[in-house]
């Protein structure tokens, strides 16, 4: 097969546009979109953003995981809808406001979930840290974010071992056990976790001090991630989509129908 006819992997691979490299652009998009969704109310505009966020999430997140996360959000939406219906039997005002009152927060959550997953699962922690460094944030913002990202792998490992210890003692951690005895289950899970996290934080703080962090010298940035053309492309696309959501909120004929 001639080389020129071979499809470009960059075009075929959905990860090429949003998965793996454009960490800084996706962080900015996540920040901008989280501000925009607070302002938007129209289900149409939010639905448009949710569809885009789902596509972005799909480029980095396994379909099964994404389906589980969205199913959980949808379950919560249906639960709130059910509770709303019950309350509406006694409250005429609630009955008049309709079911879209419940749809708006659900769509906001869906947008944020999709975008967060596309950032969290689209890059290795080292890439996230490099992107943060590249943003040249003040130390008081940069440092807690770095520590948070640094502690996530340890936290996951700790959670796994605590759950294993409980399984050996005949305790299963699941939503059912959480509902049956919420206090005991929370204690069994979180008591060791809190002590572990406190210890890790203390050790990390000591290590940071011994390496000279916070001693007054200005931090130099070695190998901070630099923005590339793909960051620009993704940011441009995001701007267009956000502008589209504003149009759907205010100007589009369909928006008036809602």
């Amino acid at each position: 097969m001639p080389v020129s006819s071979a499809p470009s992997p960059a075009l075929l691979d959905p990860r090429s546009l949003a998965g793996g490299r454009e960490v800084r652009a996706r962080m900015l998009i996540c920040l901008a979109a989280s501000l925009v969704v607070v302002w938007l109310k129209s289900p149409l505009a939010l639905g448009w953003l949710a569809a885009w966020a789902t596509l972005l999430a799909l480029s980095t997140t396994p379909l099964r995981l994404l389906a589980k996360v969205y199913a959980l959000a949808a379950g919560l939406f249906l639960l709130s809808l059910g509770c709303g219906w019950v309350l509406a039997q006694w409250s005429p005002a609630l009955r008049q406001s309709g079911w879209t009152v419940f749809l708006t927060p659900f769509l906001r959550v869906a947008v944020l979930l999709g975008l967060t997953l596309s950032v969290a699962l689209g890059a290795r922690p080292t890439e996230l840290l490099a992107a943060l460094k590249g943003l040249r944030l003040p130390l008081f913002i940069h440092l807690p974010l770095v520590v948070m990202i640094r502690l996530v792998p340890s936290l996951i490992s700790d959670l796994r071992q605590i759950a294993d210890s409980l399984r050996l003692k005949g305790v299963r951690l699941n939503p059912l056990s959480l509902m049956a005895s919420p206090l005991l289950t929370s204690r069994l899970l979180f008591a060791p976790l809190v002590f572990r996290v406190l210890r890790s934080a203390e050790e990390l703080a000591v290590a940071a001090e011994l390496k000279g962090l916070g001693q007054g010298a200005r931090l130099s940035a070695w190998r901070g991630a630099r923005a590339g053309w793909r960051d620009g492309l993704l940011l441009g696309l995001a701007l267009l989509i956000l502008a589209g959501s504003f149009w759907l909120e205010n100007g589009a004929p369909a928006a008036r129908a809602w």
Binding site: R124, I149, R150, S154, A207, L213
Partner: peptide, 14 residues
């Protein structure tokens, strides 16, 4: 591991 501040090998030395 408890004294690593970075997640990358070179970044930790730096």
């Amino acid at each position: 591991e408890q004294q690593f501040f970075a997640l990358g090998v070179a970044e930790e030395v730096a």
